[in-house]
Simulated assay, not measured.
Amino acid sequence: MARAASVEEEAWLYGAPGWTREAGVEEVVAPFLEGGSARFRDFSRFSALGEQAARDLLGRLPEENLGDRQNLGPRCREALRAAVVHPGDVLLFGYLVSPPRWDERLTIDGMLVAGGAAPPARDSSAGPIRIWRDARRRLGLGADTGEPDELMRMPLPGDADGRIGWWMWWD
């Protein structure tokens, strides 16, 4: 279960040193890491994290981390919920900051959205603002979530059917 940071932990961003390991966050994210284990790295990118891992992370991340966001991107909680609500249609991308860094956290900075969660491909002629507003509504993202820095069509990684989705990335 997610927990709040104690007074002793206030010097650290979201918990005591090593909380990502103790809470099992590294274990959940490990299969999605680019370049293998995070054990000896303090910064690791992850790709194509889906519904089950998102569900697990919702129960392991502290409340403060769930409110984390990359610039004007969706809050971590919102992105994780979108992946849970749209299984197989929302894949999440981001990074894990591990100990010994003081700013240990999981941050989501990108999403690949397909199927019923995605705006129709025909909307590509409507312009990026309309596509983004439709995607934000379909995904249940907050009104304070800003437009992505990148918005384009691309294939879902490892999808046997070759589905195409909308890539959204916040720098």
Rank of each mutant, 00 (worst) to 15 (best):
P99G: 05
R45K: 14
R130K: 15
R136P: 08
A118Q: 04
W102T: 11
M111G: 03
P99K: 12
D68T: 11
V97E: 12
T107Q: 14
R138N: 12
Y95G: 13
V90N: 00
L92V: 08
R101H: 05
R137V: 14
F46E: 08
S98A: 15
Q70I: 01
L139R: 09
R122T: 11
E104R: 03
L66W: 05
A83G: 03
G115F: 08
D144A: 14
H86I: 07
S125D: 10
T107P: 00
P100A: 09
R77S: 11
L61M: 13
S44D: 09
L112R: 08
F46H: 07
R105L: 09
L112P: 02
W102A: 13
L112W: 01
A117Q: 01
P74H: 12
L141Y: 00
F46Q: 06
A82M: 09
P87Y: 08
G88P: 04
R81V: 04
V84D: 01
Q52A: 14
R101S: 10
T145L: 10
S125H: 08
C76Y: 00
A143W: 08
M111W: 00
S124H: 11
A114C: 14
D56H: 13
W132Q: 06
D68R: 15
R136Q: 15
G50C: 01
P87K: 10
P62N: 09
G115C: 11
I129R: 12
R101E: 13
L57S: 09
R45P: 05
A126W: 11
S125Q: 10
R136G: 03
S47H: 14
A118W: 00
L112H: 00
L61K: 03
R55I: 04
E64W: 02
Q70N: 11
R122F: 08
G94D: 03
P100Y: 07
I129C: 02
D68W: 13
W132M: 11
P87W: 07
D134C: 09
F93L: 04
G67K: 15
R60P: 04
L139P: 01
E64K: 11
D144T: 10
L49W: 06
A121P: 05
C76L: 15
R138H: 09
P128L: 12
P74K: 10
S125V: 13
L72D: 14
L61N: 03
V90S: 04
L96K: 04
A143S: 13
D123Q: 12
D123H: 10
R137H: 13
D56A: 15
A118D: 08
G140M: 06
A83C: 11
A135F: 00
S125F: 08
A126G: 12
D109Q: 08
C76I: 05
V84S: 02
L92M: 11
F46C: 03
S125G: 07
V90F: 05
P119R: 06
E104S: 02
A83E: 02
L112Q: 06
L49S: 02
P120W: 05
L141V: 02
P119D: 02
G115P: 03
S98G: 14
G73V: 00
R133K: 14
P128R: 13
A118E: 06
G127R: 04
P120V: 10
V90E: 07
S44R: 13
D134M: 08
R45F: 13
P99I: 07
G67R: 15
D144G: 12
I129D: 13
R105Q: 14
P120D: 14
